[in-house]
């Protein structure tokens, strides 16, 4: 029988939505045999949040001072120690999970499956390769612990209303001191919705032209209650911070509405937006590849169209 352990992602105070998405994936693998591990220095409140997620059996709370920050080298030996009781260990395919899960797998002497997008059976999955240009169906040996990351854009969040038991755990894993967290620099002030859970996103590309001009994107996003995203070119040019990058090497998003403005639609960008419900493209080049995937395309100059659109949307 499959039993899944999910590692919770959090910022010390709040559980990241990626955890509730992992639960949705885990339920397809193991029904109600799904536990969550919360590593923290002071994690009672986090464990309580995890316990409310529908479909969770038990929340394991592992509190120690070293767990104050998500350092993979610190968490991996503890997660590996807990993993021995489970057939599957899952983490989100966010930067947190991508950092931690391969290290955990290697400590267990097993491989890792990246970016589960569909569960066909407890040991058969679909995942994207080549920036989403191909989807492979992969079968894993049933004899080894299956460590994997879950492509969060492929799963909705499980509901709330659960009442899982919370158990404190200690592991005798030895924790290295060779990796030290120094600081986290966040550019966004938290006033805009988070890209990975936003239902609407307005994204700007190189066509926006400058950091100042990005005000157009922010104004429209404000009107829509949307998150702001960007192409790599816009981030590289310094218009906006790196955490806004959408794409193969940035964030994979799944909003109901994605508005791409001054973005050409390179394959590496498109792979990040394939799960969007409706894609709108505004670009002055009618041959831009973004129009091949757009549900609604408007060929025009963004500097006139975007302010007009913002105005037209009323208050």
């Amino acid at each position: 029988m499959a039993e899944v352990l999910i590692v919770a992602e959090h910022d010390g105070a709040t559980l990241n939505a990626s955890t509730a998405r992992c639960v949705s994936c885990a339920e397809e693998i193991a029904g109600d045999q799904v536990d969550i591990a919360v590593f923290a220095d002071d994690g009672q409140a986090l464990a309580a949040q995890a316990a409310k997620l529908a479909g969770v059996r038990t929340v394991l709370l592992i509190e120690r001072a070293e767990n104050a920050h998500p350092v993979a080298a610190v968490l991996a030996p503890q997660l590996a120690a807990l993993a021995t009781n489970y057939s599957h260990v899952l983490g989100p395919s966010t930067t947190f999970g991508k950092d931690l899960m391969p290290r955990t797998a290697a400590l267990l002497g097993v491989g890792q499956l990246s970016d589960i997008m569909a569960v066909e059976s407890p040991y058969r999955f679909k995942r994207p390769i080549y920036a989403g240009n191909a989807i492979v169906t992969v079968e894993a040996n049933t004899g080894a612990t299956l460590v994997a990351t879950v492509r969060t854009a492929s799963y909705g969040q499980t509901g709330s209303g659960g009442a899982a038991a919370i158990e404190r755990r200690e592991t005798d894993a030895s924790i290295p001191a060779h990796t030290r967290f120094v600081e986290l620099r966040t550019a966004s002030d938290g006033s805009r919705p988070d890209l990975q859970s936003a239902t609407k996103i307005v994204s700007g590309g190189r066509g926006v032209g400058s950091g100042e001009n990005f005000a157009l994107i922010y104004d429209l996003a404000e009107k829509l209650g949307a998150a702001v995203g960007a192409s790599r070119a816009a981030v590289d040019a310094g218009y906006v911070a790196n955490d806004l990058q959408v794409g193969q090497t940035g964030k994979i998003v799944a909003p109901d509405l994605y508005i791409a403005i001054g973005i050409s639609g390179a394959i590496q960008h498109l792979t990040g937006i394939k799960d969007a419900g409706t894609i709108v493209a505004i670009n002055k080049d009618e041959d831009a590849p973004i129009f091949d995937v757009a549900d609604i395309g408007l060929v025009t100059d963004l500097f006139t169209a975007v302010p007009e659109l913002t105005d037209a949307l009323g208050d």
């Binding site: 967290f181 600081e183 790196n242 955490d243």
Partner: peptide, 14 residues
């Protein structure tokens, strides 16, 4: 300096 979902994380490694 690491590019993470929340921004930039600085770590020191031996």
């Amino acid at each position: 300096v690491r590019e993470v979902d929340a921004g930039l994380e600085v770590v020191e490694v031996d």
